[in-house]
Design a protein around this nucleic acid. Structure first.
Lengths: 337, 337
DNA sequence: AAAAATGAGGGAAACGTTTGCGCAAAGCAT
DNA sequence: ATGCTTTGCGCAAACGTTTCCCTCATTTTT
C-alpha cells in the first residue's frame, strides 16, 4: 500500500541504494539520475519511512520533552505551554518532532524517562522538571544520552541547561522597588525545594544587602511545604500592623495575585499602601486589579534556547556542557507605585 | 552498547523468537523459561527497541496531536495546554506517546500533517485545529488513517470528533442570564470562521427565540475578520446609550475580560449595570475584577475523550465514526448579578 | 502399539532503510 | 598504450524486532 524505496528504485531502473543516495543528496549520483528519481518520488508521493531510517542510521528525528508530573500543581502553569511552543517551533524548523512525556503510568516518572531513552524512540530530551532525581541525571550522563534541562540543575557544570538569570532578576526587581521609594520590601514564596525560588530570593537579599538593609525575618513569607500559597498566618502577622512592608516581591504571578487579594482583604491598597511585583507575566497578570507589574521571562525564548542547546548536543555529543541565560525584562503595569 | 533481544536470547540459551514471545506473553512459552528470560532481561536492563518493533509489527505507539499554527492567536490559549494534558495522561496510561505537531517549517501545515502520517512515525492523529482543509480530512479519510478532530467538523457523520455541546452551552448561559432577570442580552464574539462561535451563538439565539425575544442587530457584537477583539465602535454604539444591554454573553473569557475593561471605561459597572458571562474558564477569569462567571468546558476532559476515540479507531479501523459531547457547567462568580 | 495431538521452542524471512565495499567505465597523466 | 584516479552505481549486510512455518519430544487417543 505505502510506496517504498524499492518500488521507486524499480520504476526508475536503479537500485534502492541509488534512491537512498538521492534522498540524502549524495554527490555520487549524477544530476540526471537524481532528477529522474526525484521526479518519480514526487509522482508517487513517496515518503521515506522514518522508523526504518532511524533504525539503521541511528539518527533520531524525535526529541522528548519531559513535563512535570500532573501531581505538581505547576503543571497547569501556562508557562510550560509557552516553553513547549518555543521548543516545537524551532524543532519543526530543524526537521525534528517533539514528543511529550508527562511522567506517565508508572508513578515513578524517572522510570518512564529512562524507558523512553532506552526504547530508542527519541534522540534527546529536554527536562522541564527540576524534580528529576539527580541519580537519573547521572545515569543519563553516564549513558551519554543528549539532554538539556530547563532550570538550574545541581551539577551545573556537567549538564546542558538554560534558565533565566533568576538571581539577577531577583536583584533587579528589588532595586526597581527601591528606586520607586519602597524601603520596607518583603519577599513571598521562598521554597527551598525549588532552585528558582532560591535564586530569586538570593537576588532579593543581595540587593538589600548592597543597600545596607537587613531583612527582618517576618518579611520573608515562605510557602509551607506542599502548598502553593503563602502561609496565611505569617502573611497576616506581617501586614496587619502599622509598620507593615511597603512592597512585596512575589516569587511568581499566581502568588502575587493571591497576595493582592489577601492585602485587599486586610484593607490595604495596591499600590498606594503596598507595591506588589511578580514573576512570569502570566496571562492573568494583565487582567487583575490593578494589573500586575511583573517580570517577563520569555518562556518561548527559554524553549527555543533549550532546543538549540539540545541540537548542539545532538550534533556533537562530545561537546562541553553549555548553558544559556535568557534575558528577562520588567513589564510595568500598575501594582507598583 | 544497547542490549538487544539477541543477546538476551543467547544469555538465556534460547532463540530470539522465544524472547520475543516472552515479551508478548505468548502462551507457547513455559513458565520456567519465561521467568528465566525475564530475569535476564531485568538484570540487563533490557528495553525493546520501539523502532524495530513498530517497523515490523506495523503497530504504532505514537499518536500525533496537531496544534493550531502559531499564526493563530488562539495558540497561546491555555486551553490547548489542558487538552494536551488530558490527551497525554490517558495516552501514557495506555502505553502511547504523544507527538506534538505545530504545523511546522513549511508554511503549509496540512503538508506537514500528511508528511507525518506517511512517514510512518505515528499511528493516529488528533486535530486540535479546525483550520485543517477539508480536502486534507478527505485524504486522511481515504487513506483510512485513524484520526479524530477536536471541534465540530464539516463532515460530522464520517469523522470521529469530540466537542462540547456548544449550542446547548450558548442556550444555557442565556437562560441563566434570563433567570437572573436580564432582559436585554447581547452577544459578543461571533465569528463565522469558527464553528465554535457559530454554535454558541446559535444556542444564544435559540434561547432568546424560545423566550419570544428578538435580538436587535446592534446586540450582536462581531469580531472583525482577523481580529481577536470585538469591534470597538460597535461596542460603544451598543453600550454608550441609555437603553444599553443589561447583559452580554461573550464567546470566550479573553473577550469577556476585554469587554469588562471596555465597559468600565464607559463607566458601566459589572454586574450592577451589565452582567458578563464568558466561556472556557481560563485562569485569568478568577483574578479579574469582578471574578468572571463563565462556562467551564473541561478541556482536559475533551482531551481524554479525544484520545479515547482515537484509541477505538486504532483498535478497530472499520468502526463507525463516533462522536462525544463532553459536559460543561457554569462556574458562578461575580460578573453576573 | 501405532497414530494423532499437544507443547515448547527454533530458523529464517520479513519490515524499509542506510552504507561499506566492489566494480565497471571513463578521464587523466605518463 | 599503460597505469591510476574519478565518477556512477549496484550488492548485500546490517538495524532489532515479529511472526509464519517447522521440528522434535511428550502425551493422549484409538
Amino acid at each position: 500500500m505505502k510506496v517504498t524505496i524499492k518500488e521507486i528504485a524499480q520504476m526508475a531502473g536503479v537500485s534502492p541504494s541509488t534512491v537512498s543516495r538521492v534522498l540524502s543528496e549524495s554527490s555520487r549520483i549524477s544530476a540526471e539520475t537524481a532528477e529522474r528519481v526525484r521526479e518519480i518520488m514526487r509522482k508517487m508521493h513517496y515518503r521515506p519511512n522514518q522508523l526504518a531510517r532511524s533504525l539503521v542510521s541511528r539518527k533520531h528525528t524525535i526529541v522528548a520533552v519531559m513535563l512535570p508530573s500532573a501531581a505538581q500543581t505547576s503543571l497547569s502553569d501556562p508557562f510550560f505551554y509557552d516553553v513547549l511552543r518555543g521548543i516545537s517551533v524551532d524543532a519543526a524548523r530543524e526537521g525534528y518532532h517533539v514528543l511529550l512525556s508527562t511522567g506517565g503510568h508508572t508513578s515513578d516518572e524517572d522510570e518512564s524517562l529512562i524507558d523512553m531513552v532506552h526504547s530508542g524512540i527519541v534522540g534527546g530530551v529536554i527536562l522541564l522538571t527540576s524534580k528529576v532525581q539527580d541519580e537519573t541525571m547521572e545515569s543519563l550522563l553516564d549513558s551519554r544520552f543528549p539532554f538539556v534541562v530547563l532550570g538550574h540543575p545541581v551539577r551545573d557544570d556537567q549538564i546542558h541547561w538554560v534558565d533565566n538569570d533568576n538571581v539577577a532578576a531577583g536583584r533587579v526587581v528589588t532595586e526597581y522597588l527601591r528606586a520607586r521609594g519602597c524601603t520596607r520590601i518583603a519577599l513571598a514564596g521562598f521554597d527551598p525545594h525549588y532552585r528558582m525560588t532560591v535564586d530569586r530570593c538570593a537576588g532579593y537579599r543581595e540587593a538589600l544587602a548592597a543597600a545596607g538593609q537587613t531583612v527582618p525575618p517576618e518579611f520573608e513569607l515562605h510557602v509551607p511545604y506542599g502548598f502553593t500559597r503563602v502561609d496565611p498566618v505569617r502573611l497576616n502577622a506581617a501586614f496587619d500592623r502599622p509598620d507593615h512592608p511597603d512592597a512585596v516581591v512575589c516569587i511568581n504571578d499566581l502568588l502575587a495575585l493571591e497576595v493582592m487579594r489577601d492585602l485587599a482583604a486586610l484593607g490595604l491598597r495596591v499600590p498606594q499602601d503596598v507595591s506588589v511585583i511578580g514573576f512570569n507575566n502570566i496571562q492573568a497578570a494583565q487582567y487583575s486589579t490593578p494589573p500586575l507589574t511583573t517580570v517577563e521571562i520569555d518562556a518561548e525564548h527559554l524553549g527555543r534556547a533549550a532546543f538549540s542547546l539540545l541540537l548542539h548536543a545532538l550534533n556533537d555529543p562530545e561537546a562541553e556542557a553549555a548553558r544559556e541565560l535568557v534575558p528577562f525584562r520588567i513589564v510595568e503595569r500598575e501594582s507598583v507605585r
